[in-house]
């Protein structure tokens, strides 16, 4: 019995023993990316800041929105979408870009996408910090439901990680996937209630279809936590948890079924 438990835990123990590698890879990436830049990794805020300002101007002056606290609504959606789209767009090249390393040293391959996730999530924490700093000025209220935010954030990262794993494996065989993803993610942005509320969609069929998409689900979850000051409905939470499980299942299966044979083809 204990032997069975031990063998089930073995892979986790192995990953755990490589924790310093993850730490070093993350530190390296952050250091390299913003080395020599006077503002350091404050630059990582430039892009989201500009986009947010742009939409803010458009949707307050050009097409005014009648939502209360609209800037907060939009910022919450965009901040999470940004992390998602950044991770997904970078994921295609993760294995191919690290071919040199993967072909010369054996270490758990999963640590390559994992450290990329952690790098981007770490840099993103600054954006999140700004959201928290501006939370009350933008019209938000602290409420106990926000304590559940880390739980939803982990679900969200897990969902994204599954997609990353699938993409980096598929990219080895389908090198035009990257362009497809780049176009598709733009489309997805507008097809997700991020800068407009779902209630703006009047067609009932399209609205219910949109509700089923995991992208709308995570946006709705974060909007309800930060903007509507309520807990996400259990249906929404369960739905997104299922999507996360599915995404991770597909991603991990692809990664482990094809991953080993992939290295020689990088």
């Amino acid at each position: 019995m204990t032997a069975a438990i031990q063998s089930a835990l073995a892979p986790f123990q192995r990953w755990w023993s490589y924790r310093d590698l993850v730490r070093n890879l993350v530190a390296k990436e952050i250091k390299v990316r913003y080395q020599g830049a006077a503002l350091g990794f404050a630059w990582s805020l430039m892009n989201p800041l500009m986009i947010t300002l742009m939409y803010l101007v458009v949707f307050t002056y050009v097409f005014p929105s009648n939502l209360p606290h609209y800037p907060l609504f939009m910022v919450v959606g965009i901040i999470h979408w940004n992390l998602f789209s950044l991770l997904v767009m970078q994921s295609s090249e993760l294995l191919v870009g690290n071919a040199d390393l993967l072909k010369k040293i054996y270490f758990p391959r999963l640590l390559v996408p994992l450290s990329n996730l952690l790098v981007n999530a770490t840099l993103w924490l600054m954006a999140l910090g700004i959201l928290f700093a501006l939370y009350v000025p933008l019209g938000g209220h602290w409420h106990p439901g926000l304590l559940l935010y880390p739980f939803y954030l982990i679900l969200f990262l897990g969902f994204t990680f599954g997609i990353m794993l699938a993409l980096c494996v598929l990219y080895v065989d389908f090198r035009d996937l990257k362009h497809l993803v780049e176009v598709f993610i733009q489309l997805l942005f507008w097809a997700t209630p991020i800068i407009y509320p779902l209630s703006r969609i009047h067609h009932p069929l399209i609205q219910s279809l949109m509700k089923l998409s995991p992208f709308a689900e995570f946006s709705l979850i974060f909007q309800s936590l930060f903007w509507a000051d309520t807990l996400p409905s259990w249906k929404l939470s369960l739905g997104f948890a299922l999507w996360t499980a599915l995404s991770l299942a597909i991603g991990l299966t692809l990664f482990y079924r094809r991953g080993a044979r992939l290295i020689e083809r990088l």
């Binding site: 023993s17 490589y18 924790r19 310093d20 730490r23 390296k28 390393l101």
Partner: peptide, 11 residues
Amino acid sequence: YLNASLFGLKN
């Protein structure tokens, strides 16, 4: 440190 950790060494 980075290279050694690739071989599984702790910092």
